[in-house]
Design a protein around this nucleic acid. Structure first.
Lengths: 340, 340
DNA sequence: GGAGGGATTGTTAGCGTTCACAGACAAGTT
DNA sequence: AACTTGTCTGTGAACGCTAACAATCCCTCC
């Protein structure tokens, strides 16, 4: 009758009582403190198992100062890049024993990031990863509520914070050079939205690679990542006999381009060669299979986390410059030699 | 000299002191308790602003029993469906003032879900959303650590838990009927992986719609959601003159099918009509644009959350049966009348 | 003209951990 | 034999908040 039926989860003191020790000893065992007698440790561990005890993360966070939760600020997670990055970070975090709290923003403006960060800070996250692919990220991140360790993904020249990113310049160069090597006299470019850093980097690298090769630089075509914008670009490009090679800022745009060319009986790669960017899972099965630049988002996630954990251990002010993640050219059937 | 430079964030007692009230009054103001004099409330609010005070969610959770964080268990996937659902849930949660903690699983087995739920429980989440599209979900969810309110997405007949899902049967019926209405004598089906509930539902509905219409039921072709599997299916179907209409279990598979047909000079919709499922953003720009079934994942997220919040307020044992979310047929260019 | 009652505020306990410090005990020193 | 050392364990106080109760105050009413 002393145990009516209290399915209340066991707490530390319960374990302590069962093991015949003080709650502090239980805490020590749980946190791997060295000076606990082996026999005592066993006893505690047994009690833990017996009561199916799980430490309360809230109390833990409150009492100590560290929590085992990381915050992630992300965007429009339907896009392949951000989604893949998020997944990569989550995996790496789990492997390191951390949980993940996410906040997705509609837009990356100053207030938005500020609010997101506050919300995360309220939850006392140990640190945050900000997936900030926008050009105004730098400005938005300038005045972070300090004190909370943070790393950013793709925030280019933000400078204020340690950053991880895929080497967009190298990727774009790979794409353009591949096309030039195939004998195309120049390469057209359907760029991404101008408020995305990746888009800017890819465009810049496209331009400079062309210039370095002494090739003429055709006018750039606007795009916004969507297949629709690629389609529209394709419609404009389809009639132009000068166009023999196109570098699309991402794979979705390339899909749209393909669609437009198909509609207009422009043959790929017979008449025009196309290179995309991202290597989304679908790229291999477009018509024709798309030559593209692969980004390793898992690696990005891993490095992010490694860097953040470093920061947690040693809250230095120096912002270590991580080497950029190298992209790779994946050659498929959408590119071929230039027609003479 | 009494203020060296302690940028330690303000806590409730600081606010109380500045406003000249007790910490409890501050708490009351923050929680919208009615009986606080307007003048006092103003004073407290001013102090809050002045100190840039933000309540500590950890302490809040520990003291009261409710936390403002919801857990989401999802899967190791950048698949469109789960990603879109996650985003939908996150949005709805934010709108309701809740934060989101996620755990992604590689597989939905019993231990995996158990671990994920424990991890979430440790963080004292108020409730969880389980995105459980697998057939073995029911089994895995049978023995949840009880006490924590949960709703599942797409867990079919699990029964134990309140569930939200898109009406797969209606969707598949829409697809098949559309094809039959166009005059096709029957419809082939490239199904999804057998351990996914959606895949099963779609297949079943495909079969029964055919039967109900008195159409012969061709052998089903296996797929696994990937474009590659669709491609392989396409290769098998391409030579067969009896095939004039195909219903793919998702849009990626349809893409692969399109690719294979293209390769084999099977014209779509001239020779064969194709319907997909999901309406991913790319569907509109495939070659040809894909007729497909749209699922409203935002709505799923919203309903999920509404149901979960209901559950939090009134922890009833009854599991309310929510109406399934209705899918819609989106007609594009991949379907056309049967050749006579 | 003091009792009854609602509105407003303060006081005291926790919530479940970790931290800082202090005991207790055995072993090694002088 | 008294002292130092180190290992192991326990005690009490935070951490920042909410819950429950008690204390005031100001009206209204008979």
């Amino acid at each position: 009758m002393d145990q009516p039926s209290p399915p209340r989860p066991a707490v530390m003191i319960d374990v302590a009582r069962l093991a015949g020790v003080s709650h502090q000893t239980v805490s020590r065992v749980l946190n791997g403190h060295p000076s606990v007698r082996t026999e005592t440790r066993e006893r505690v561990l047994t009690a833990v198992r017996q009561l199916n005890y799980r430490p309360n993360a809230l109390a833990r966070g409150l009492a100590g100062r560290r929590s085992r939760v990381l915050g992630v600020v992300s965007f429009d997670t339907i896009l392949y890049g951000p989604a893949a990055t998020l997944l990569g970070v989550e995996r790496a975090a789990r492997a390191a024993g951390y949980g993940i709290s996410i906040v997705t923003l509609e837009q990356l403006d100053h207030d938005g990031v500020g609010d997101a960060l506050s919300a995360l800070a309220e939850q006392s996250v140990a640190g945050v990863v900000i997936i900030a692919p926008f050009t105004n990220a730098a400005a938005a991140l300038r005045s972070l509520p300090d004190g909370i360790p943070a790393v950013v993904v793709e925030a280019g020249m933000s400078g204020a914070l340690p950053a991880i990113s895929v080497d967009q310049v190298a990727g774009a160069k790979l794409a353009v050079q591949h096309l030039l090597d195939l004998g195309h006299s120049t390469v057209w470019h359907v760029r991404g939205p101008q408020n995305w850093l990746e888009a800017r980097d890819r465009e810049t690298a496209w331009r400079s690679t062309l210039e370095k090769a002494g090739a003429p630089v055709p006018p750039v075509i606007d795009g916004d990542w969507s297949a629709r914008s690629g389609y529209q670009a394709g419609l404009r490009l389809a009639g132009d006999p000068r166009v023999s090679a196109v570098f699309c800022a991402n794979d979705q745009q390339a899909l749209g381009l393909l669609r437009a060319f198909h509609e207009r009986d422009v043959r790929v790669p017979g008449d025009v060669s196309i290179v995309g960017f991202d290597d989304i899972p679908e790229a291999e099965f477009m018509s024709p299979p798309l030559t593209t630049i692969r980004q390793d988002f898992d690696e990005v996630g891993r490095r992010c986390l490694a860097m953040l954990l470093d920061l947690l251990d040693a809250p230095t002010d120096a912002t270590p410059a991580a080497p950029r993640v190298a992209p790779a050219l994946v050659t498929r059937a959408s590119t071929g030699p230039a027609q003479r």
